[in-house]
Nucleic acid binder design. Structure first.
Lengths: 124, 124
DNA sequence: ATGCCACCTGGAGCCCACTCCAGGTCAAGC
DNA sequence: GCTTGACCTGGAGTGGGCTCCAGGTGGCAT
């Protein structure tokens, strides 16, 4: 029998998403992941949708969104289509912060490179 | 009498650097700032050089360098000119990490913008 | 049938980087 | 001379985000 390709074990999700198993459990505990299915033995079985949502989480985490805000986003997502405008607002605000981060990093990077260049001038 | 323009009170340094007073004291405690001068009353008096060093700290902090690594950098700086090559190595490694951060942020930003665009397509 | 491994739970612990607190000192302005 | 405010110290507390632990279950390979 073919394996159900759209169902993932915890180990596969760890592999797939780069989150640790403990982190996945933590996210479920705090409500960032909702109602993960279980098999007969009580082990988690993630759907394709769960993995997709974790991709979104990864994206928001890596761009510095605090968990509290992701939680609000998760709740909006669960609440249905009438929250789409709110979600747009949240993501657009976040996008602006990401842009600020990028700009700030680039600026600081220039200073660091200047320092490196100065050190080179000292040493050469 | 003209004020000594190259000496700063704690309040001025807070203003100047954006670090809180507690953070400045914390940095001194852990050795990230060395031997800040005191006036007769035991109050800190920062030199131009201290403020410059804090600018460097700000730069490294804002680009995500952990305090432990800044501490190593601080120690090298104190140790004298024979550490300049090591310092270059440290900063170049850091610069590469900053570049990775920027690249990663930009990539994630594309995904976020796609999500926003998708939401717009749903709502319009 | 016996390891062994992946998984489970609730709860405690950890790390980082601050941040706050209590109780005190000095200096200047009213 | 008294208040106000900027500063001092040592030490405890906080918040975010995991991470680890003890003790247990179920299934598969040898």
């Amino acid at each position: 029998m073919l394996p159900d390709v759209s169902v993932y074990t915890p180990g596969q999700v760890v592999e797939e998403t780069g989150f640790s198993l403990d982190t996945l459990r933590y996210y479920e505990r705090i409500g960032l992941l909702e109602s993960i299915d279980r098999n007969a033995a009580g082990q988690r079985r993630f759907t394709q949708k769960d993995v997709g949502w974790l991709g979104m989480i990864r994206c928001l985490r890596d761009t510095g969104m605090p968990i509290a805000e992701m939680l609000r986003f998760a709740e909006m997502t669960r609440a249905g289509d009438h929250t789409v405008r709110e979600r747009i607002a949240l993501l657009e605000a976040h996008d602006r912060r990401v842009q600020e981060q990028v700009d700030n990093l680039r600026e600081r990077q220039v200073a660091i490179r200047n320092k490196i260049a100065y050190y080179h001038s000292v040493v050469d």
